[in-house]
Design a protein around this nucleic acid. Sequence first.
DNA 1: CGTTAGTTTGACCTAATTCAAATACTGTGG
DNA 2: CCACAGTATTTGAATTAGGTCAAACTAACG
Lengths: 217, 217
Amino acid sequence: MPFDAEISEFQAPALFEGLDADAGGIKIRYAREEEIFGEGEPAEYVYQVLSGAVRTYRILRDGRRQIDEFHFAGGYFGIEGGPDHRTTAEAIADSTVLVARRMTASDLADQRGDVARQLLQLTMEGLQRRQDHVVLLGRKSACERVASLLIDLAERSGCQRTLDVPMSRQDMADYLGLTIETVSRTLSQLQADGVIEIPTTRRIVLRDRAALAELVE
Amino acid sequence: MPFDAEISEFQAPALFEGLDADAGGIKIRYAREEEIFGEGEPAEYVYQVLSGAVRTYRILRDGRRQIDEFHFAGGYFGIEGGPDHRTTAEAIADSTVLVARRMTASDLADQRGDVARQLLQLTMEGLQRRQDHVVLLGRKSACERVASLLIDLAERSGCQRTLDVPMSRQDMADYLGLTIETVSRTLSQLQADGVIEIPTTRRIVLRDRAALAELVE
DNA sequence: CGTTAGTTTGACCTAATTCAAATACTGTGG
DNA sequence: CCACAGTATTTGAATTAGGTCAAACTAACG
């Protein structure tokens, strides 16, 4: 596992020198499906996706999985309030990840104010995304959920019309609180309606963004 | 509306003088069902429940409501990352709320580090609660959702065996992503199973906490 | 007390799930 | 480069958890 193999070399002093990816931390490559950290493990490091994609999720006793978030290039993950990771993180595709030792609360107090502010900003954004996720899961139909995900993916990829989705249908289902069959059927229906086009499994073209946006709520 | 009537008197300098409720801000009373702030309004103030209970929620175009969070005595709400409130806040019961002018990012930078750290701590806790909420809505059955809420309410009221629930069945349903009828039926079933007792509508006794905890996932 | 709103219960319905099978990918070795 | 094995996805049929509609019941309040 690359994590164990390389991490000992690392002694970055601050959270990426003020959460700026170029400065602190070391790069680690993870293969598709490889675990980056596990739920319950001590949260000693923080992470930023440099390339590829990462999922964080939780598992219930009987195996039900809920994906908490998808993380793409530029996104941070593994930042925790408490001592331990509350989710498991895995690479969805082959990925490069920047890893830095987490700052303690006292480190943070000593630090320049803008680092703390950036961390707060990041946490606030995470909170907002979970609030949106709660509305999606609590009150939206299957079709609205799928449409919401597609719009979100498009926005996060700089409003591309053609999405290269790195995740499987199972990943989508476990993010959307649906089954794989429902996700598949919904995508097929959206294609039949001319709203999207699915040239290959992992590629989705948004043909009618307005119609999709209408479906979002 | 008490908000408009009294808010002009107020000039607290910092977020409750370091988020400490005794110092900054002014107390405002809200009647049951009264709005405290609305979604989309500028987030000029931050709030702490002193007594009573508050719900924050979002509404979809067609009226579907998703309650984001219940706030009880001691809890903070209305703290936003952006310029506007992303939820509507209403008093569930007659409530007293401490209201303070929000700090700007630059205020925060000038401030002692422990204020910023407390705000970060608060935001992290909020994030964690939404993560739990996402798992509940995405992957738990109606029965598990209701049990989770009861356990959460019990823990937040200092592990009382008897819960005085201030919220209506509709509030519970809109928090749990269910309908009022399903909540009612589920509570009735839990009572029939001897797990809880419902002496009055707004009072629930947890007779078998272990059984309830088993249901949580 | 009577009125109104909130809650519970019943009967029926449907969106999404489950189970099952067909089809389409992906990667690998020959 | 192709054939094959294994996996992922799609589609179909049947089932069900939870929703909807409707009515009875209960509690709160002037």
